[in-house]
Design a protein around this nucleic acid. Sequence first.
DNA 1: ATATAAAATGAGAATTATTATCATTTATGG
DNA 2: CCATAAATGATAATAATTCTCATTTTATAT
Lengths: 130, 130
Amino acid sequence: MVILMNYSKQRELILNTLKENVVHPTAEYLYGKIKEKDPKISLATLYRNLNQLSDNGIIKKIDGLEPSSHFDHNTHEHYHFICEKCKRVFDISADIAPDLIKKTENSTGFEIQSHDIVFTGICKECKSKQ
Amino acid sequence: MVILMNYSKQRELILNTLKENVVHPTAEYLYGKIKEKDPKISLATLYRNLNQLSDNGIIKKIDGLEPSSHFDHNTHEHYHFICEKCKRVFDISADIAPDLIKKTENSTGFEIQSHDIVFTGICKECKSKQ
DNA sequence: ATATAAAATGAGAATTATTATCATTTATGG
DNA sequence: CCATAAATGATAATAATTCTCATTTTATAT
């Protein structure tokens, strides 16, 4: 039997800190938060763990906010909205696109393993401030 | 009156080369192709133009294939599928998710300016080779 | 318990995609 | 043809992420 991940204090801390955050933080932001609790933790450890956790489907990497990736502890099917003004990332319910996988697999013959939808625009709050 | 973009030989070459490519190339791949025709062209010129063209909606930047962005000359509404095996990027018809914008704007109150769907999985060809 | 092997860490160097700088060249509109 | 704005080429700079490697921690079998 193959062991995928051994326990580590650092990984637990990283995952817990990510879960506490309503926002979808970058590695850099997370690093700041994590160092408050473990000032000796290395940036390499953070990146290593974020990659492992997302490779194993425990967290999700969000692209589309270059130059840095954002991370999401919510693995329930849902999508993202990035506000161009305040740069915050909002969750969007998966209800907006029912049967997306099935439809796409049927029309292409491809096997779909994962998918993400990223919307950009102006959020409600920023729109009312204009 | 504000001029957005002046003509340049280099930009024309970049856009034409992108249009010739069925694949959705990275800047690096494009640079190779473009240098065959204009060996003196600078990498900075390529990046500058790719950014300008995508800022003006003439081409599209595709995220989700880190560490480098890919570029797409097709600006008709469509989505992308990335094969995990062969790493090719395929176009997916927008028919799979009708009224996506309208539904999302209605349920969130956000103003949506753009959106992209990226699927990952195994393409038909790679699946049959397994 | 203890030994052993596999996995994880910390620190910092290395990598690499992309952007910035700046002097020179090219395009545009009167 | 002139003035101005925009674009280029060459290269330096930036910054996010990965790699290296010696040391420490974790899991497992005896």
